[in-house]
Design a protein around this nucleic acid. Structure first.
Lengths: 186, 186
DNA sequence: GAATCTATTGAACCAAAGTACAGCCGGCGG
DNA sequence: CCGCCGGCTGTACTTTGGTTCAATAGATTC
C-alpha cells in the first residue's frame, strides 16, 4: 500500500520521494543519471531506486555504477514495484533478468582474465609472459600495429609472438585465439 | 523462523533443501559449482542460493553465471540469511557489498569504451537475415572461405555482407564483430 | 662453456581480409 | 512503371595477417 502511493507521487517530474527504507527518484528522459543522483541526499546509506520512462541497459548500468540499488520503469506494475522495494530495502540489488545474464557473463569472463597467475585456464600456463600480453591484447580486439605501439616493440615482433602462440595453442588465427582467451572455445 | 531452520538442515554436506520460494544448496569446499548446480532440480524457476564454507569472488561469480540468485557463507548470521531469502524470493539478486562494487565497476568501465549508442544485442535488429547468419559464423571463428561454403555462396559475397555489417555496426574488422556478437563489448 | 629459452628484429613472401566500383536479379511500395 | 532494397557476383586493388628464411642478445640451466 505505501509503495503504490509512493510511486504515484514520485511520477511527478524530478520528484524525490523517501519511503520506508527506500529512496525513489524519477528520472526524466532528458535528464542524465549522474546529474540526478548527485543532488539526491542519501542520508544513512539508504538504497535508492531510479524510475525511468525508457530504461535501457546502458542507463541501468550507469545508475548501478553510481550507487543506485536498482532501476525500473516508471510505469511498472504496482506489484513489481512492491517487490523492488522489498528487495532493495533488504540490501539486495534489483537487476532485470536479461541484463543480469549479460552482466554476470561479461564480468565472470573478465574476472577470469585479470589474475595473471590465478586461474586454471591452460593458455596462460602454456605461454610466456610476453606472449600472454600479446594474446590478451589480441583478444581485446587490437590490431598488430596497435599492439606493437602499446608494447613499444615492432609489428614484426608482434607477429613473431603470434606465430609462437598459434603453434603452442594449436590455433589458426587471431580470431580463434580471441575465442580461446575469452573462454568461448576449447 | 523457517529460514533459520532451513539453514541448519542444509548445512549437512550436499544437502539440497527447498524453502518457501527459495532453494538452498550447500556447497562443500571440494565440490565444483557447476557439478552441484547441475544436479539440482529447479522446478518452476525457483531462485537458488548457494551456501559455501569459504566463498570467494570467483566462486560467487561462477554461481551467478550458472543461474544462482546468490551465494553466501554457510555460517552466516540468521538475520542475514533471512534477508537473503527475502531478497531472492522476490526476484532480487543477492550480491555482497564488496563484490557488487567490483562487478559494477568493471562493467561500467566497458560502457565508457564504446559509447556509440549501441546495446550489445541490437546487432540482430540492425542486420538483415543473411547478414546475421554471416555475423554469427564469423563470431564462431569461421574464415570467409568456410562461410562461403557453408552458405553456398561466393567468398566475394561473404565479403560484401561483411562490409555492410561493419558499416551498420560501426566496426573495423571481424575480430571486433566477434566480440560484439559474443557480448564481450557492450 | 655449451645448450636452451625468450625477446627482439629484418627482408621477403604468400594468403587472407577488406575496399572500390561496378553489374544483375527479384520483390515491394508509391 | 520506377525507385529502393536485399541478395549475389565479378575484377581489381590495398591493407593486414601470418610464414619462412634468417640473425643478435640476455638469462638460465646443466
Amino acid at each position: 500500500m505505501p509503495v503504490a502511493r509512493l510511486v504515484m507521487r514520485s511520477a511527478l517530474p524530478g520528484t524525490v520521494f523517501e519511503g520506508p527504507g527506500v529512496i525513489w527518484c524519477r528520472l526524466r528522459s532528458e535528464e542524465s543519471v549522474d546529474a540526478v543522483l548527485k543532488v539526491v541526499d542519501r542520508a544513512g546509506g539508504q538504497p535508492l531506486v531510479l524510475l525511468c520512462d525508457e530504461p535501457n541497459e546502458s542507463l541501468v548500468m550507469q545508475a548501478l555504477a553510481l550507487g543506485a540499488a536498482g532501476c525500473c520503469n516508471t510505469h511498472a506494475a504496482p506489484d513489481v514495484l512492491r517487490q523492488v522495494a522489498l528487495v532493495v530495502s533488504n540490501g539486495g540489488l534489483w537487476v532485470g533478468q536479461s541484463l543480469l545474464k549479460k552482466l554476470v557473463g561479461v564480468t565472470s569472463q573478465r574476472l577470469g582474465q585479470l589474475p595473471p597467475e590465478g586461474k586454471s585456464d591452460d593458455w596462460s600456463a602454456l605461454l610466456s609472459e610476453r606472449e600472454s600480453q600479446v594474446a590478451r591484447l589480441v583478444a581485446a580486439g587490437s590490431s598488430n600495429r596497435e599492439i606493437a605501439d602499446q608494447l613499444a616493440i615492432t609489428e614484426r615482433t608482434v607477429k613473431a609472438h603470434l606465430t609462437a602462440i598459434f603453434e603452442k595453442l594449436g590455433l589458426r588465427d587471431r580470431l580463434q585465439l580471441s575465442l580461446r582467451i575469452n573462454g568461448l572455445k576449447i
